[in-house]
Design a protein around this nucleic acid. Structure first.
Lengths: 348, 348
DNA sequence: TTTAGCACTCCAAAGGTTCGAGTGCTAAAG
DNA sequence: CTTTAGCACTCGAACCTTTGGAGTGCTAAA
């Protein structure tokens, strides 16, 4: 059903007001705060019609109207005004992106932190991961007589390492020879190729002490398994208390339980189901959120080219979508600019 | 003031019951559930006396008694019965400690996770850190034509690394020579010695392209700064909802706000103020917790010898101290056994 | 010193009342 | 046909009152 211009205006007015106030919006409120040039009775008629069409709901007979999920959807897709970030907000972002980080993970963590601070909602991100991680170099570096570090350097610039203690001491020369052989043998291999079969076949070919090989191959097989591990991390959880819906303990419990660690698999799949552009998931639109009154705005970030992940904001359905979407878009654009080239690592 | 045996028994009974039920305990309750051989009137008299001595409090005239902070202190130090872990609990711990971890951080994280699951409270830990980190080896490993990884291996087996991309390409030989020199020069140095002064003096001495040196020294100076960074991590935050005190939204807000990121400095100092043995901080005993009705049980863990940190449980003052202390003690003993020697791995 | 008995206290829960914001409907006006 | 003023009606939020019971402290007797 196509909405008349007036209906659109009224719907937008109601949702704007409801997002701002968290109170059901009545016809006389709209009359007072918006210049529609019609009486409250007319607005009431339109509201009744919008309700029938499924865009609005009534908590009870004598309350105002509240947007339905469908209402929010129309609002997000067609009605809302664009939010422009203030100078102060832009400065805050610029400043935070200027910092140096030992690890990329720290960078994205601190970005999600800003995100939650700017929006007053909770930020979620998935830890960056590469779809393809190929080995560039493997080195065994002696630490002490009976311990060494094995370092696997990948083409995307990421590094994995483990300290290994051994029963007997190995000559530096042995370690170096093994380093050279492994680097030669596995250069260009994707880590996913480190299957038990490949490794045990390989082991036969190397004329070095079995225990040494085993410990190194254990490590390789572990990084193969870990390659797929993506964590979900939260920031600004307590921001929820800034919103009146979370003065209700039941609501708060439900929200926090949804976010808890045990549930990260579900959240991961929720995030990864979104496409390449910023997308909005409103309340019941995803069965996982059924009756939870939770919405998400999800976008994609990428660090140093090949490391990618999702950065999202989660909050009540009554969310300031305009602000969240703009901020998220701006921020991820910045990340991709700043981190994409001069920082971190990349293959050219 | 020394308490009579009977007073001790009554105090213990009250606190035991209160911990179990979360309801103020009345004299007739004690009469019913404990075999003290005296009437409720006598118990009432004793309770009045315990209250006067500061071990008990009354929420209001016609309610039962509730332990004061002082009461809990006496209970923890003298009165409570030891809690014995069940076979199931021990199995759970053993099983979790048997897993393999690419990183030590993962290990302690998963341990704190178990801890929170076993106790139904929130677990806190500080990330492991070494008081002294001395360099064993520094290696520059080429990734591609114009990028390399610099890896700093330390004597405690920890490794730090960074990928560096350069304007021009360097020969593998140059990188190797520089590796050798840096390893030779800095072997045995504590990372804290990487001050701007030392590094810039050193730079003069090395006959290699300045940009190359700069990028490597930047890294070294960053790890010097990061050496002191200890994070505070939480697990099982939502466990609080299992306890009736957190049916109150105000209480819940206060608790979660206390735990939030911005406050980690305070928590860190709270944890680090404890000694080498497991210690209990009850409510107001620490000014930081003033009127927050929060208690902590804090213990020390160590991974692979030199990496140490704090592992703690935080919850309402009405906490099952006996269970928490036993579980924490058992768990940290296990960590120190299992992780102390044969495992040792780390990653940036 | 202990205990039965009793008056007293005070909260929690349940029920009742009031108030007002908001609605839908009707009938008249545009 | 659309808009609007007018009005009766609805229903929850906020406030008060009542009631019941758990628990106390005190007193006087054992």
């Amino acid at each position: 059903m196509e909405l008349s211009d007036r209906k659109k205006k009224i719907l937008q007015a109601i949702i704007d007001d409801y997002i701002a106030s968290a109170e059901p919006v009545g016809s006389s409120h709209i009359l007072k705060n918006h210049d529609l040039g019609v009486s409250s009775a007319t607005i009431r008629n339109e509201m009744a019609s919008l309700e029938e069409a499924g865009y609005l709901e009534k908590p009870h007979t004598s309350a105002g109207r509240v947007p339905s999920y469908l209402g929010y959807r129309v609002y997000v897709d067609q009605l809302m005004n664009e939010y422009r970030l203030s100078i102060a907000e832009i400065n805050q972002i610029t400043h935070a992106l200027g910092k140096k980080y030992i690890e990329l993970r720290r960078a994205i963590d601190s970005i999600s932190d800003i995100m939650s601070a700017l929006t007053d909602y909770t930020a979620i991100y998935t830890t960056p991961s590469s779809s393809l991680v190929t080995i560039s170099n493997i080195k065994l570096i002696a630490v002490e007589a009976r311990s060494f570090v094995v370092v696997a350097v990948c083409h995307d610039g990421s590094v994995r390492n483990r300290t290994i203690r051994t029963a007997k001491a190995y000559e530096a020369e042995v370690l170096e020879k093994l380093s050279n052989y492994l680097s030669y043998r596995f250069a260009g291999c994707d880590v996913s190729e480190f299957t038990p079969e490949v490794l045990s076949a390989e082991k036969e070919l190397i004329p070095v002490d079995g225990a040494l090989i085993d410990s190194v191959f254990d490590f390789l097989s572990d990084i193969a398994n870990e390659a797929e591990t993506v964590d979900v991390v939260l920031n600004g959880t307590t921001n929820i208390f800034k919103h009146p819906e979370f003065n209700d303990i039941g609501r708060t419990k439900e929200f926090l339980n949804f976010l808890k660690k045990d549930n990260s698999k579900m959240i991961k799949s929720l995030l990864s189901a979104t496409g390449d552009t910023t997308s909005v998931i409103i309340g019941n639109e995803n069965p996982v959120l059924k009756d939870k009154d939770i919405s998400l705005v999800v976008s994609n970030y990428s660090l140093g080219g090949s490391m990618k992940g999702k950065l999202a904001i989660i909050g009540p359905t009554r969310m300031d979508y305009a602000k969240v979407i703009s901020t998220l878009d701006y921020l991820t654009a910045c990340i991709n600019d700043v981190m994409g080239n001069d920082k971190g690592d990349d293959q050219t």
